[in-house]
Design a protein around this nucleic acid. Structure first.
Length: 365
DNA sequence: GTATGCTTTCGGC
DNA sequence: TTACGGCCGAAAGCATAC
């Protein structure tokens, strides 16, 4: 294959930046966007914080009460998430980005990969100009900053974008990949979270360079064939994944925090059925049927359990969904002594109505 | 033995 | 000292089919 030029555009501290865009008087202060669980006044977690808040140690995932403690006596702003607004902003930015790409792949609400090989005629010099142009367009049209990474593939582009944030632009040409990756901690690689990082550390692997020197066979033994070879290739900056449009979501889910911890079926089902109604509404709007139903329980100690069931034929019956959810919760509670803090429901194995028809047609062929 | 499907857990954002 | 959301997709691990 021809050498590619891939770009990853990442909107900076997205939810908090959207809030700054909506209300510029927030700029200059710590801004913390929160998911309030409703259990007590400040229970919940931080979704995103701007860079000023991050200087005080406030970051994604920490408890709101801890964030407030870190910002005690500081003039700061705590806001609840407003997904609808962020989605509108995101759609406008993605439209801008798409117009500059040969191939486009949105990842989540605030990130997109772009294959710009053709548009830049394979030149990093032109890629740099294009990236600057994109940053300017996103700023003038939407008043948002972003960080851009450019490299020979998605893996390198992603890591490059992470190197300088916010409002960064980092280019790594094919010949520089080895020097660029080697000194970085393995946690920079997609797929290496806290657990994998610990596991690698026990093997004496701390940097991407360490990983590159590590025996592939042993990596496969420890992590399995797929993940082991992925880690090996990743450490060498090898990645052939194409940039391509993503289709419909593969699953739809809702989770919420209970008023009080419980293992009473009736209490759990009352909440779960509300969640079913909400997931079902989204399902209908998209004209989808489902084949699999899952439940999720987050225990008092925050450990997570899930159970699921797949049915014979795709259906779009709300009652089938709820009945399956009731069965799964009843079975789960009878088989464990877990006390629930949060409960969730999910549908997956989704299919469009027309395709369901097609499946039946094929079946009776 | 390999492919495929289902369930559960992990981890990114 | 603790505190604690709500999504999503990927992959492992297992069972079954071919």
């Amino acid at each position: 294959m021809q050498a590619r030029i891939i770009m990853l555009v990442d909107l900076d501290y997205f939810y908090a930046q959207c809030e700054e865009k909506r209300n510029p008087s927030l700029q200059g202060k710590p801004v913390v966007v929160c998911v309030y669980s409703g259990r007590t006044e400040d229970s919940g977690a931080v979704s995103t914080a701007n860079y000023i808040a991050r200087r005080y140690g406030v970051k994604s995932g920490i408890p709101i009460s801890l964030a407030k403690k870190k910002l005690k006596d500081i003039d700061s702003v705590f806001l609840p998430v407003d997904h609808e607004f962020y989605r509108e902003v995101s759609e406008k930015v993605m439209e801008i980005l798409r117009s500059h790409a040969d191939e486009f792949e949105q990842v989540g609400i605030d990130e997109a990969y772009m294959d710009v090989t053709q548009g830049t005629r394979g030149s990093y010099e032109e890629a740099k100009e294009l990236a600057a142009r994109i940053k300017k367009d996103v700023w003038t049209q939407q008043k948002l900053t972003c960080s851009i990474g450019v490299g020979p593939n998605k893996l390198v582009a992603k890591i490059a974008a992470d190197i300088q944030k916010p409002d960064g632009l980092t280019l790594i040409e094919a010949g520089e990949v080895g020097r660029f990756l080697s000194p970085l901690p393995v946690s920079r690689l997609v797929g290496v979270g806290r657990k994998t990082e610990k596991k690698m550390e026990t093997l004496g692997i701390r940097t991407v360079g360490d990983l590159a020197r590590f025996d592939v066979q042993r990596l496969v033994e420890v992590f399995g064939r797929k993940l082991g070879t992925y880690f090996h290739n990743a450490s060498l900056g090898i990645d052939d994944e194409p940039v391509q449009e993503r289709g419909e979501a593969e699953s739809l889910s809702r989770i919420s925090t209970l008023k009080e911890n419980t293992r009473e079926l009736a209490v759990i089902l009352e909440e779960a059925e509300k969640l079913c109604d909400e997931v079902y509404a989204r399902l209908l709007r998209r004209g989808l049927s489902f084949r699999s139903v899952s439940i999720l329980v987050v225990a008092t100690d925050l450990s997570v359990y899930s159970r699921s069931k797949t049915i014979e034929n795709p259906t779009k019956e709300l009652e089938v969904f709820k009945k399956t959810v009731r069965e799964l919760f009843a079975k789960f509670l009878s088989e464990s002594d877990v006390e629930a803090r949060r409960v969730g429901v999910k549908v997956s194995n989704l299919a469009k109505e027309e395709e369901k028809q097609k499946q039946l047609t094929n079946f009776f062929g």
